[in-house]
């Protein structure tokens, strides 16, 4: 399979695609910006897999910002992705106590200690919520994702998921959250008694 054409998508077109929820826009971005980010990571103690991982993370961040209206298009998307990827990788290096190369030390290097927020968002805690969401399944999970991640209104959620109206969606959200809380509590109890 040939790689996607790289230069046919302007930033505006890409951003428009993301706003419309078209994930193929990310695929084009991945192809277009893979090289400099791969070089960045591989020059700095990373592997090809690391580079792919970092770029995917940067794309998710871009997607999130654009979809939430918090993306300021003052720089080219490539600049945003490159800067994001570099910071992700710097932080990863700091966390894993790997050597931070000299050419990256000219920039502010993040320390590796967890902040209070990160301590709260421990991997274990997030994993528990992930597992509970997996157990919850759709449409509850989709509804919660729409509400918490996409920051959709109940009107939008109702339209997206086919509920009768916003009130129905709101009622369903309440039920879904209660179910999720029960799953989380039972998971915690299971750990404590296990």
């Amino acid at each position: 399979m040939r790689p996607p054409l790289l230069f046919l998508n302007s930033d505006a077109r890409i951003l428009d695609g993301i706003r419309r929820g078209d994930e193929s826009a990310l695929e084009a971005l991945y192809a277009a910006h893979r090289r400099p980010i791969t070089a960045l990571v591989m020059r700095n103690n990373g592997t090809l897999d690391d580079a792919a991982d970092v770029l995917q993370d940067a794309l998710v961040i871009l997607w999130e910002r654009v979809r939430s209206g918090r993306y300021e298009h003052t720089a080219a998307i490539g600049t945003f992705l490159y800067a994001t990827a570099r910071n992700i990788w710097l932080r990863h290096l700091a966390r894993s106590r790997r050597e931070i190369p000299a050419d990256l030390q000219q920039h502010d290097v993040p320390h590796g200690d967890p902040s209070p927020l990160e301590a709260l968002e421990s991997d274990e805690d997030l994993s528990a919520v992930h597992a509970a969401l997996d157990a919850l399944g759709d449409p509850c999970r989709a509804l919660l994702v729409l509400f918490y991640w996409e920051e959709a209104s109940m009107d939008e959620a109702a339209r997206t998921l086919g509920f009768a109206n916003a009130a129905t969606a709101k009622s369903k959200k309440y039920q879904c959250k209660e179910q999720l809380k029960r799953l989380l509590r039972s998971s915690r109890d299971g750990h404590e008694h296990g």
């Binding site: 897999d49 993370d57 910071n87 990160e118 968002e121």
Partner: peptide, 20 residues
């Protein structure tokens, strides 16, 4: 992509803040 062991999102979100 074959990668299946992601960098924790707590690191990534903090890094994104810098970009913003």
């Amino acid at each position: 992509s074959p990668r299946s062991t992601p960098i924790p999102w707590t690191q990534i979100v903090a890094a994104a803040a810098v970009v913003l």
